[in-house]
Design a binder for these strands. Structure first.
Lengths: 117, 117
DNA sequence: CCTTTACATCGACGATCATCGATCAAAGGA
DNA sequence: TCCTTTGATCGATGATCGTCGATGTAAAGG
């Protein structure tokens, strides 16, 4: 079993929207992550994986989402390279699962401005 | 001063990604909101407004974001109709501000699965 | 070695998006 | 009443995106 940590999420991705001085680069990074969430099929894939105890192979995801297999791979790649999913290879099969750490961290993006002194 | 509540956000928008059974429609709704966040300029607009004590007029936003005025209006419309911004008109000026309620609620989208029994 | 299965990549397509100049509507002043 | 200013909308553009059939690749089984 070869487990592959996703390559993308720039360390601790995405400063809060209310961060005092967000650089242009920060904005690009943040937008990139949300772009991965900006498609109904990808949202459904996340929902599917979030409700699966174990990792799920591409063929099962393809069935559940009702897309052609290349299209499913396309979406999985976007989600993975945004850091939202993890991929493990087992023989001919590829298993995908939620990257809970990254997804959980995204909550902080919407955290309100730190207490004003 | 005419204050206009944004028309879009379907009540309490966006169920958690880990919701047990997300409908296809839920996925579309969720994706629509994140699509509004999926552009660097729009992220910067949110960041700008999140750090402004008061609402900001289009001309000031245009200056700070460094886009042509029609492009700024285009982005503001996307953010507003996603429910992320509020718009107030004052004479010839239009003032935009963060819809804190909606933005804050978005944190719940990334909340982890409810305790497993 | 050949076949099958699972998945990724390629190439092409139509659709949507971001951008901006030009134009329009509305609100104040002079 | 005219001119100026603000901001929204229109129309055109180039770029990106989602989709899928065809093809490629790698593993497993006969």
């Amino acid at each position: 079993m070869v487990s592959v940590k996703s390559p993308a999420p720039p360390a601790a991705c995405c400063s809060p929207l209310a961060a005092p001085a967000m650089s242009e680069g920060d904005a690009v990074t943040t937008a990139r992550v949300f772009k991965a969430l900006a498609d109904p099929h990808r949202v459904r894939i996340l929902n599917l994986l979030a409700n699966s105890r174990d990792a799920v192979c591409v063929c099962d995801i393809t069935d559940r989402i009702d897309l052609a297999q290349p299209t499913t791979s396309f979406h999985l790649k976007k989600l993975t390279s945004a850091g939202l999913l993890e991929r493990q290879q087992q023989g001919t099969w590829a298993y995908y699962s939620i990257n809970h750490e990254v997804l959980n961290h995204l909550r902080s993006v919407f955290e309100v401005k730190e207490a004003r002194r």
